[in-house]
Amino acid sequence: MKTKPLKILTLIRWKNLLMITMAQLLIKYALLEPLGVNTSLNSFEFSMLILASICIAAAGYIINDIYDVETDTINKPDKVVINTAITEKLGFNLFVLLNCIGVAIGFFVSYQIDNNALFSLFVIISALLYVYASYLKRLLLIGNIVIALLVATSILIVGIFELLPGITVHNQNVQLAVFKIIFFYAFFAFIITLIREIVKDMEDVSGDSLTGMHTLPILFGLKRTAYIATGLTWFTVIGLLHYLETKLYKNMYASGYFLLFIIGPLIYVSIQLLGPKSNQMFSHVSQVLKLILAFGMLSLLLYKFILLK
């Protein structure tokens, strides 16, 4: 089999890696820098944090595809990369290499801020991605929750490295207040990713049922799973409306942005999920949820106008 190098970009989900990069850059330069809070990383160290994050995430995508060859051959045969464009051996070698690079860079960044204990985060994330691909994804909801937690961690890790090491008696109130904003965005990423993972399971139910998976749609059926996904969607809508009422109501532009680009599309998703079930609909909803996550992260650009007004 002839290796197709460009397919490596597909294998590592380069668009998703760009999303991680964008989210981390926005937290640093659209939230932390304008607010003038005490941060721990200079520009080079922060770029290394981003590089460590995307290396480990890319490794996770590779090992997931290696373990998913049989399922993907049934669900989406035209998108299978392992053993069609790239050998499994090369894929596994890339997985090991990227993990080693990501963990090594994570150690470097932790050492630079004199907090070696934070290095363990990269080891834990790397190990979880492997265990997810090889075992956890087959378990009811556990795999979905693990992936959602890892996406949330890619956002939260900026606050952990930038804010927590710099907390003092004098600035702890400000540092923790800003960390709460980052936590809000991490939780938003968690819940949107969880909904999306459930929707993707609904789309992949045919292949998953033939390969021993125990996902929500396999155990409860598409209709009940759609109700669960809809319930989570409305939980998110209500939470965001409460956030608008308590935090953003004084800023017309921020409120309008959240209503138009996040809350409105989430209501649209809930309507779609309760309609006729088809793989085309599930794929469409999955893409809409990805856009909602992107627009959610882009809302960080509004905070310098909201908080400094």
Rank of each mutant, 00 (worst) to 15 (best):
Q272V: 00
M252H: 14
K250C: 01
S270L: 04
A254F: 12
P276A: 13
S278C: 01
T233G: 15
K250W: 03
L266Q: 04
F258Y: 09
V269T: 05
L259I: 01
M252P: 06
T246K: 14
P265S: 12
Y253H: 07
T233L: 10
I228A: 11
L248R: 03
G264S: 14
Y227N: 13
L241P: 09
T230N: 15
L241S: 14
I262R: 08
Y249T: 09
F258L: 02
T225D: 11
I271Y: 12
G239D: 05
A229Y: 07
P265N: 10
A226R: 14
V237E: 06
I228V: 14
L273A: 09
R224V: 04
G239E: 05
P265E: 06
K250D: 10
P276D: 13
I271L: 13
L232I: 07
K247V: 04
L241D: 13
S270P: 00
N251D: 14
Y243L: 13
I238N: 10
I263G: 08
I271T: 02
I238F: 15
F261S: 06
A226K: 11
L266R: 02
T246C: 07
L266D: 03
Y257G: 00
W234C: 13
L274M: 13
G239Y: 07
F258V: 00
Y268C: 02
L266C: 08
A226C: 13
L241K: 11
S270F: 03
A229H: 05
Y268Q: 04
K277V: 08
I262Y: 04
L274Q: 15
A229I: 01
P265F: 12
Y243M: 13
G264P: 03
F258S: 02
L259F: 04
F261P: 01
Y253P: 00
L248C: 11
F235Q: 03
I238D: 06
G264N: 06
K277N: 14
Q272N: 06
L244E: 11
I267H: 10
F235D: 03
G256V: 00
T236R: 05
I271S: 08
V237W: 12
I238L: 15
F235R: 02
L240M: 11
P276V: 07
I228P: 05
N251T: 00
L266F: 05
Q272Y: 02
F261Y: 14
K250H: 15
K277Y: 12
W234A: 08
I262N: 08
Y268M: 10
P265Q: 09
S255F: 05
Y253L: 11
H242G: 07
R224F: 12
K247I: 03
G256W: 02
Y253D: 08
L241M: 15
T233P: 09
Y243A: 15
E245I: 02
A254Y: 08
T225A: 13
L241H: 06
L232N: 10
P276H: 09
S278T: 06
K277P: 00
L244P: 06
S255A: 12
S255Q: 02
Y243H: 13
L241Y: 11
F261N: 09
L273T: 00
L241R: 12
F258A: 03
S255R: 06
W234F: 15
N251V: 00
T225W: 10
V269Q: 04
G231C: 06
